[in-house]
């Protein structure tokens, strides 16, 4: 490899500014953290409630993404329908939209008076908003695109002849999927699942709009941070640190999948 020349000074300075833009908020959080009382802050009942609820809901959203997103990714990657381009745009939309808009849209669809929510509420006597299930749906709405698009990319990169080889050996489509396709795209599947889970864990806007904020039922970690921000900033900072720690851990574990070549 040829030795790399250093960046021009002006670019290096701009790069440093950019890096600081990301480093300083984290430093602020660490500097303002109530370290001596951190244990006590995190042991508070509402913190524990929020943490447990967040874990439950984000894992539920990840599971929902897996169960529903997997067929969707397969269809997007291998289907022949002309609708695929349109559906891909629909799937990508929640990644680009402000989550609050997503929350409003979810209300209009699945709320008590919503497009499908009204008949559902009539049939089952309940609606999703303000329920823990609503949190899972809101989180899945925002998080599933990460899973679907990551998995679709993995499936597209997979040589279709592997599945054909398996079929020629007598494997039916389900068995091909289970024993060949999925094991071969396992890295994308795991990366997508963790990305979706991490996004669900950090979800705020769609959740508070669609599911509200009630301790123990719909108040997840980010919502708890928001509620605590003015009244008990220390608790908010402690909760934020938990989220930062989880996110950092996920990034570290997935550095190979997400930064190929850069993870030296």
């Amino acid at each position: 490899m040829t030795p790399r020349r250093p960046l021009p000074a002006a670019l290096a300075a701009a790069a440093l500014v950019a890096a600081l833009l990301f480093a300083l908020p984290l430093a602020g959080l660490v500097a303002r953290a109530p370290w001596p009382r951190l244990g006590a802050e995190l042991a508070r009942a509402e913190v524990r409630d929020a943490l447990l609820l967040s874990l439950r809901c984000s894992l539920g959203a990840a599971l929902l993404s897996l169960v529903l997103g997997l067929p969707l990714a397969l269809w997007l990657a291998e289907g022949t329908s002309r609708l695929r381009a349109l559906v891909r745009v629909l799937v990508t939309l929640p990644m680009v939209l402000p989550p609050v808009v997503g929350g409003v849209a979810l209300l209009l669809a699945f709320g008590r008076q919503g497009l499908v929510g009204a008949p559902l509420a009539h049939a089952f006597g309940g609606a999703l908003p303000f329920t823990t299930a609503g949190v899972v749906v809101a989180e899945a709405y925002v998080a599933m695109p990460f899973f679907v698009l990551t998995l679709e990319a993995g499936l597209r990169a997979l040589d279709p002849r592997y599945a054909q080889a398996a079929a020629s050996l007598g494997a039916r489509p389900w068995r091909v999927l289970r024993t060949v396709t999925l094991p071969l795209v396992a890295p994308s599947l795991v990366a997508g699942l963790v990305a979706a889970w991490a996004r669900a864990l950090g979800e705020f806007g769609a959740t508070i709009t669609f599911a509200g904020s009630l301790r123990g039922e719909t108040r997840t970690l980010p919502l708890a941070v928001y509620a605590a921000l003015e009244t008990s900033p220390d608790a908010a900072i402690a909760l934020s640190l938990v989220l930062v720690a989880v996110a950092a851990l996920v990034l570290f574990l997935l550095r190979r999948q997400w930064f190929p070549g850069g993870a030296r």
């Binding site: 908003p129 508070i208 509200g212 904020s213 009630l214 108040r219 928001y226 509620a227």
Partner: peptide, 11 residues
């Protein structure tokens, strides 16, 4: 002296 249960603590 009314006990009400709010569906959510709205912001």
């Amino acid at each position: 002296d009314v006990v009400a249960r709010s569906a959510s603590d709205e912001p």
